[in-house]
């Protein structure tokens, strides 16, 4: 896949990997970067898609899903990562997998300064509680990165996050 195609198709690539990894539950707090993936999950009758009011609900919910034998993925924006920190203790103390797909704000060409604090602190915050972090900044690497993260989460029983760079998503432009 060339770079132009990859830049358009990466949400579909993620969806394909999630299906291939038997992910059957998707929960989310919306982000524009996850729009297509959320829509594809909702349209998929084989997937259970749950909307959350705040991101840490997804951490706890997917721990319950995995106890019940189902694999899930938590979709969110970087601004929600801080909400999750205490809840990740469930995953760490119980060795329960967690796959977090985080679309980044507050980095590449950010327009809204209020996104910068959490965006710049996202990786450190996750790593401070032992979440394994992968960066995804090149759309041609999407499938490999998501697959590696999902494998490590589900096969090694660890919380793993993929930070999807703002460079991949593009600037958020506000109407002038």
């Amino acid at each position: 896949m060339n770079e132009v195609d990859a830049a358009i198709a990466w949400p579909d690539e993620i969806y394909g990997v999630l299906k291939d990894m038997d992910v059957s539950q998707v929960c989310y707090v919306p982000d524009a970067g996850h729009k297509i993936l959320i829509e594809r999950s909702i349209a998929d009758n084989q997937m259970t898609t749950v909307r959350l009011t705040t991101e840490e609900e997804g951490v706890a919910m997917l721990a319950g899903s995995w106890l019940g034998g189902a694999k899930g993925a938590l979709l969110m924006q970087s601004s929600g990562v801080g909400n999750c920190i205490n809840m990740v203790g469930i995953n760490q103390e119980c060795r329960i997998p967690l796959l977090m797909l985080v679309t980044m704000r507050g980095e590449w060409g950010e327009f809204n300064p209020w996104q910068t604090t959490m965006g710049q602190g996202t990786q450190d915050a996750l790593e401070s509680v032992g979440v394994i972090v992968h960066r995804l900044d090149d759309a041609t690497q999407t499938a490999d990165t998501i697959r590696a993260a999902a494998r490590q989460a589900f096969l090694s029983y660890r919380p793993v996050a993929v930070l999807i760079g703002q460079r991949m998503i593009g600037y958020k432009e506000f109407a002038k």
């Binding site: 997917l62 205490n86 203790g89 469930i90």
Partner: peptide, 22 residues
């Protein structure tokens, strides 16, 4: 029985994930 010793605020929604999986 799954006993939580942490994750305050997460018990009910953990039940949701389990209920959807089972």
């Amino acid at each position: 029985n799954f006993y939580l010793w942490g994750g305050m605020g997460g018990a009910a929604v953990m039940g949701l994930g389990l209920a959807l999986a089972q």
